[in-house]
């Protein structure tokens, strides 16, 4: 499904990813963990071809992403749904319009939009708020809308970059249940997170990145604060003790 082979990406002297090889199968649920600046977002951006790899190969559904021309990028992105920590909804559009918008801009017929958009809203459990504007919703509800928008075009992969980062624990769990449900319907889910509880309880595959390298890849893995958090690295490096 997704395969990185010896992928390296540097930003000037900063290392984004270094010689990363990993493969994610169709239907997988993967947590991508690691301290801040480890290269998680770089990993995601490479998959979307928002940035170019310096070297290596990235296969998506058998297609070589690094060789895609600019004109082929939209097609790639239509098979990837994405959710962000800050929701990124359009404030002047209603919930329904926010979701329908994702279909309109890729030339889906209005008839199909009228059929599909309500289904996506109902899947994320937000049908009753279809006519509301984002500022009228709670954070959790907004994230549901963002998820509905991400999956409405039936992507094969859903990427979530810290989707629970702005949510309280209970709401975060609701979102996790939703993501798991979407995963059981066959969508591959890649979730970037710092949420220890969630990673441990979900007991899914965990890929840990640090300084641009993959340090751990476990099925049914757990979160290891000593490896996956920045403070821990400083302590391990012999930095100033935390007072």
């Amino acid at each position: 499904m997704i395969e990185y082979k010896n992928v390296t990406k540097t930003y000037g002297t900063n290392i984004g990813l270094e010689d990363v090889s990993i493969s994610i199968e169709k239907g997988d649920f993967v947590f991508l963990v690691g301290p801040s600046g480890a290269g998680k977002s770089t990993f995601v951006k490479l998959m979307l071809k928002e940035i170019e790899a310096d070297s290596g190969s990235i296969l998506f559904d058998g297609a070589e992403i690094t060789k895609l021309s600019n004109r082929e990028i939209p097609k790639l992105r239509r098979s990837i749904g994405i959710v962000f920590q800050d929701f990124r909804l359009l404030p002047k559009k209603t919930v329904y319009e926010n979701v329908a918008f994702a279909m309109e801009i890729i030339h889906i017929s209005p008839r199909f939009i009228r059929k599909q958009a309500p289904q996506a809203l109902s899947l994320v459990g937000i049908s009753s708020k279809a006519g509301k504007y984002p500022h009228e919703l709670s954070a959790g509800e907004q994230q549901r809308v963002a998820i509905a928008r991400a999956i409405v075009n039936n992507p094969t992969v859903l990427i979530a970059d810290e989707p629970t980062g702005n949510l309280d624990p209970d709401t975060a769990w609701e979102i996790m249940e939703l993501l798991e449900h979407i995963n059981t319907r066959g969508t591959t889910v890649v979730m970037v997170t710092h949420a220890k509880e969630i990673v441990n309880k979900m007991s899914k595959r965990v890929i840990a990145i640090k300084n641009g390298r993959i340090t751990r890849d476990e099925q049914k893995g757990a979160y290891r604060p000593e490896e996956d958090e920045a403070e821990a690295i400083e302590a391990a490096d012999g930095g100033l003790p935390v007072l």
Binding site: L48, N70, R71, I73, P74, K75, L76, R77, R78, I82, R88, L90, F101, A102, I105, I106, R149, N153
Partner: peptide, 16 residues
């Protein structure tokens, strides 16, 4: 800007 970045993520073509 926000709308455009979303359009890009959803896979709108550049000319669109």
């Amino acid at each position: 800007e926000r709308e455009i970045s979303i359009m890009k993520y959803v896979g709108a073509t550049n000319w669109f």
